[in-house]
Amino acid sequence: MVFIPYGRQSISEEDLQAVADVLRSDYLTQGPEVPKFERAIADYCGAAHAVAVNSATSGLHIACLALGLGEGDVAWTVPNTFVASANCAIYCGASVDFVDIDPVTLNMSARRLEEKLKIAKAEGYVPKVVIPVHFSGLPCDMAKIGALAQEYGFHVIEDASHAIGASYGNGKVGNCQHSDITIFSFHPVKIITTAEGGLATTQSAELARRMQDLRSHGITRDAARMAKPNEGAWHYEQLDLGFNYRMTEMQAALGSSQATRLDEWVARRHAIADAYDKKLAHLPLILPVRESGSFSALHLYVVQVDETKTSLTRRQLFDAMRKAEIGVNVHYIPVHTQPYYRENGMAGVSFPASEAYYSRCVSLPMFASLSDEDQARVIAVLEHIFTVPEHSLA
């Protein structure tokens, strides 16, 4: 029986050719392919600038630095995310706190955010940066979050690692209408891939310049920005403490090729989700929402065991699916429950909506190349699990 993963990349002959062309070229790094990829994604999203990096984690890190996050500052994100959404602030010397999720959308609750901001302001501080996460590809309530940013004076970084191809209102996620910077991920399980890789979009030329410096050791070759007269074509100056976060030419070429099929793949994900919605409606599962006013990229299709309708636990469902060679997964263990965070101020802290969601959630296979036959097998296995006696699942 063939194992069906929860997510996987799709690589075409055109993708292979694009990478092979770079390998035969004069540039494997710092050539023309990275700017080409950056321009393609910026134009797609409606952003003025894009900065490609070697991972979304790197993108989050330099986005925080570009916004001046540092020692003594606080960043807020959600517990329901991968640890990188929080770690990026700690890399900068800042501290991290969390805002609980909305139990329906599974995104940062704008209501909880506003409540927490009111308390924080009364106590004499507000976060320097808020990092909402577009979980599973569904956009957060960015108009509300952006309005709160204006009212309380914090910066916004959209963690859109799941959400390239998604839309909010009349624009694409990544246009930064309600934020300073948006970060995308191109890990192999994401909607398009560069193997590893990430990218930041922004409408600010200054933020783009800062991130460009930081991704490459803080170095410039721009004579107009140098402290000393240009000594020759070899001359460069380090203006800041940066990092080696550059994307390679091969990665960028793969990304540009993949991006040509982005809308097609998102449409296929919606067809898969429509089939799941229809075929799973009779099972004791809470199915994901797709809100009016936004268009999800559907990176994930997450179901939750409905404890009011079955005594089957999430662990039993997960193990039974894996036993049937269905590669379900869990997204995510709440960040504040991780040992590192418990040891650094989060012991005894609770975010009930995130914790309740985590106790019930399972991510089903969702990727553009998932065949109708394989999806039918996933559905059939789910139906079987909920109809057999529980003791037989052991």
Rank of each mutant, 00 (worst) to 15 (best):
D372G: 02
R209W: 15
Y340V: 13
G345A: 02
P132A: 05
M108D: 00
A267M: 04
P132D: 10
A394E: 05
L67M: 15
V83H: 13
A94Q: 07
P352L: 09
R342G: 03
L65V: 02
E151V: 06
H299L: 14
A205H: 14
K279S: 14
H162D: 15
E158H: 10
E237A: 00
H187V: 03
T310R: 02
F184Q: 10
L287R: 10
R39N: 01
M142W: 09
G124D: 12
E115D: 15
A380P: 00
A297L: 05
P127L: 07
D263V: 11
I385N: 01
R221T: 13
F37P: 04
N54E: 02
P103F: 11
I62F: 09
I181L: 07
T194N: 10
N175L: 04
T337R: 15
E231C: 07
D102Q: 07
T310C: 07
V78A: 12
G46K: 05
K121D: 12
A233G: 00
N175P: 01
A353W: 05
V335G: 01
S161W: 05
I191D: 10
S25M: 04
E123I: 00
F82M: 12
R24Y: 03
D100Y: 07
S294N: 05
V96N: 00
V330D: 04
L262E: 11
G171H: 13
V78S: 12
K121P: 02
H217K: 13
H61D: 14
G232M: 10
I191Y: 06
N244C: 01
G46D: 10
V2M: 09
W265D: 08
E151A: 15
T105G: 01
M250L: 13
L317T: 01
R360F: 00
K118R: 15
A120K: 06
L113N: 08
R268W: 01
D213V: 01
L207W: 08
R225S: 12
S95W: 03
S204A: 09
V53S: 08
G31I: 03
S392Q: 15
L16S: 09
D15M: 09
S256L: 15
S216Q: 02
R269N: 14
G327D: 07
G124A: 11
V305D: 02
D306S: 05
T57P: 00
A147H: 13
Q238Y: 00
V51H: 00
G31W: 10
Q316M: 11
I101W: 10
K323L: 14
R290G: 00
S55Y: 03
L300F: 12
M226E: 07
L300E: 15
